[in-house]
Amino acid sequence: MSRIAVLVWLTAIMVAALGLFHVKYEVQRLEEELGLEHQSILERQEAIHILKAEWSYLNQPARLSDLARRHLGLAPMVGTQVIRLDDLPQRAVRKAEVPTPTLDAILARARNAR
């Protein structure tokens, strides 16, 4: 009876020890992975930081206006070019409702045109 109990306990202890070591190594591995991830996050943040500076550099207004002048043919807008929605003339008369043509009608017209 007591022998069985001893066996049971020994097995339990071994299982527990194995489990413990397994968990320990797993945690170690995960921590290494976490460290690497943090490392790469920092690297990426540094890259973003540098890219932001470069973006700001490339967006120098003088450079942009030079590019716009050479490639877009645009000139600075003046106040007289701006108009408010209210200043637009109203549409004169509302046309009488025209029934939407059916697909057959459109095809027929296309065929006739040809």
Binding site: E46, H49, I50, A53, W55, S56, N59
Partner: peptide
């Protein structure tokens, strides 16, 4: 817009 920054 970034006007001054510190780069490595």
């Amino acid at each position: 817009v970034v006007l001054a920054t510190t780069l490595p």
